[in-house]
Design a binder for these strands. Sequence first.
DNA 1: TATTGTTATACTCTATAACTATA
DNA 2: TATAGTTATAGAGTATAACAATA
Lengths: 148, 148
Amino acid sequence: MSPSSDRRCAPQAEDLVDALVQTSFAIMAALTRVAAENDLSLTQLRVLAILADRRLRMTALADFLGLEKSTMSGLVDRAEKRGLMQRTPSVDDGRAVDAFLTSAGRELVAKGRADVALSLTPLMERLTSTEQRRLQDLLERLLGEPAL
Amino acid sequence: MSPSSDRRCAPQAEDLVDALVQTSFAIMAALTRVAAENDLSLTQLRVLAILADRRLRMTALADFLGLEKSTMSGLVDRAEKRGLMQRTPSVDDGRAVDAFLTSAGRELVAKGRADVALSLTPLMERLTSTEQRRLQDLLERLLGEPAL
DNA sequence: TATTGTTATACTCTATAACTATA
DNA sequence: TATAGTTATAGAGTATAACAATA
């Protein structure tokens, strides 16, 4: 169990895991705080962000978020009740339903995005512009090849 | 509303925000999956990880996680019921309660940490060793000065 | 009086299973 | 028969408020 015992992975890989995980928790805390300040849960803010520039079927939205379609029904129910989203039957498929933002929803997600950027600025300013670009590049490569 | 309209922040800062947020959601998804594979919620796994090498009072644990103490009571109740944690009255302060892991809890968190590292390895392998070190350094600086 | 923790309550998030309607 | 979505149900996570015990 000692840190110097043999491992499957190189030691510095473990430290990178820790850095990634701790950074992610810090980012999630910031997002959760911004969401709460706008009377949203983190999941609701995420739904609004995904729908900011497109309309999606319930199943596509659920897949995007990694949630069950029944979970999606509840999320959209509550957002619709608050006037942030709407549903319409799909014209292509009588079974399907498209979800999209109302103007109130679009306004809220725009404010949310701006608040998130403001909230993360103090963190990002710990790095120089060059380092910020380098970090962005490394993260994009970690996520997968950027939109080919 | 156009992407090229004037902003408070430099354009590339917005892209770094997106990269940080998207990376964080990807990491959280991996952590949530690992937790679920071990019959834990993400929060439970996090509690176990925090207590892996220390014992903390309920309030300290709640502060660590950014949760209310009443939320902490429920989380510890359920973990205790599963034999992963224990509570004992503090010797220093008759009002306080110390929380700590059982041996089953320590075993589970060790497996969880290993699973997380394995789960993130494919992502990290998209970068060279040098890049991994650079990324780790940048993230640690983003989080704040590393333990002085 | 202030602090530590628990309990009561309510709401959101989440999944599973059963169901309806359409393909 | 298979797919899209909703509803019913249950449990976890979360916060607020009220409470007991201790400092």
